[in-house]
Design a protein around this nucleic acid. Sequence first.
DNA 1: TCGGGTCTGTACGTTTTCAGACAAAATCCT
DNA 2: AGGATTTTGTCTGAAAACGTACAGACCCGA
Lengths: 241, 241
Amino acid sequence: MEPHINQKSNLILNALPSQERERISTHLEYVELPLGKTLYNPEEPIRHAYFPLTGAVSIVTVLRDGSSVEAGVIGNEGVVGIPLVLGTEMELNRRAVVQIAGSGLKLKATTLNEEFRRGEQLHDLLLSYLHAFITQLSQTAACNRMHRLDERLARWLLACQDRLNSSELQLTQEFIAEMLGVRRAGVSVAAAQLQQRGLIKHKRGYIQIIDRAGLEATSCECYEVVRQEYQRLVENRAVTG
Amino acid sequence: MEPHINQKSNLILNALPSQERERISTHLEYVELPLGKTLYNPEEPIRHAYFPLTGAVSIVTVLRDGSSVEAGVIGNEGVVGIPLVLGTEMELNRRAVVQIAGSGLKLKATTLNEEFRRGEQLHDLLLSYLHAFITQLSQTAACNRMHRLDERLARWLLACQDRLNSSELQLTQEFIAEMLGVRRAGVSVAAAQLQQRGLIKHKRGYIQIIDRAGLEATSCECYEVVRQEYQRLVENRAVTG
DNA sequence: TCGGGTCTGTACGTTTTCAGACAAAATCCT
DNA sequence: AGGATTTTGTCTGAAAACGTACAGACCCGA
């Protein structure tokens, strides 16, 4: 159902042919990804790419008034630091921040670039992943405009759980509000509503998903569309690649 | 100020070294891009890439209820059909539709792919352009959530004018509403407000920009952020590349 | 165990946008 | 010129989310 759950490995690295993977492995360094850690900021050079093993990293657009809105999420199905292979080492408007604590493997910017430019399997896998990420971005752009908060919250919780091994999330409403680009009080109301319908249970700094099917029914279509695209482009390749 | 205005050439093709450009040129076919023409639909194979010379193409996310929201715009600074080089020949959730009538050069999907995979200059230029496009998507995602309609309308009109040789746009409020993901009546009110402040003049199916500086002041920051990124990544390369 | 900091639930009036509708104006076609 | 069609301006009441505020609940460290 959710193939990228419960795997303590990175799907992109996994899909590499053994020779390529072994060569790259010698450059990989294990890192913890604690909640809230910033992997890069707008206008700062990106020094490493991160291949998450567990947990999730949020890519958020930062506005001039300091507010921020999540544009996409990256878990073990992807990699943080795509700009490095696109020929630039920074982003003007985005921050990468750990949303669910976990761990990953990091690779120096220059090494990633060299490997990418060899034009072997990593090259194609990254581009394929990128397409799925772009689908996520464009779907989120529409979602932010058209869908109600409760639908978007349900979508967001589902996407979180996909990157998690359990149904329990350690997140404050304040953090969620910043991701969804709404008031904290708004999240409070929406969460209460989901709980009242028996879909989640929540207390201070904690949300547990009780009824996943129910959440999927409440969520806007965006969850499903994005999931489908990742499955088509990343997970299938990970098997056949 | 707006280097990609007033050039009847495509910046990506322009930036190619002469040998590469000549080789590719033999495969290019001139096409008109009439207002409203659909270049591809969700879940349909993309058969050609389009390098606009004049006019602009809108990439819109299509939702299940048939409504749509613009995710990004592509003019002579870019190319329509990026998925082709990312290893897939379709998009699940997006449509490409001509927003400002013009013309372009089209290239068969397979040819683009072959050229891309040679790993020469086209490869790098497309990826560089892609990064700027991603910046546009992520900025729009935040913009759709955080900014008021009048600010977004101003932003949108500016982006249109950048792809145009004149200050006059042939567009109905209905069309604009669909791009911005709002009601037609909302656009009517917002446009009246901009006109009352002397920034634009509009009548049936027509908008003229009167005070560009004023529009820039009214627009949200998103216009400027995206413009800057295109300048950094595409236009500078077009000169030095 | 007590106090300070953090997090949550809830309230208020306000702003923005919505849905739907209708008539006036502009344009097109014959 | 006349009628049909398209486009626009405006109206109504309603929904959603806003900014702000405050008190209660919870948690942690001294």
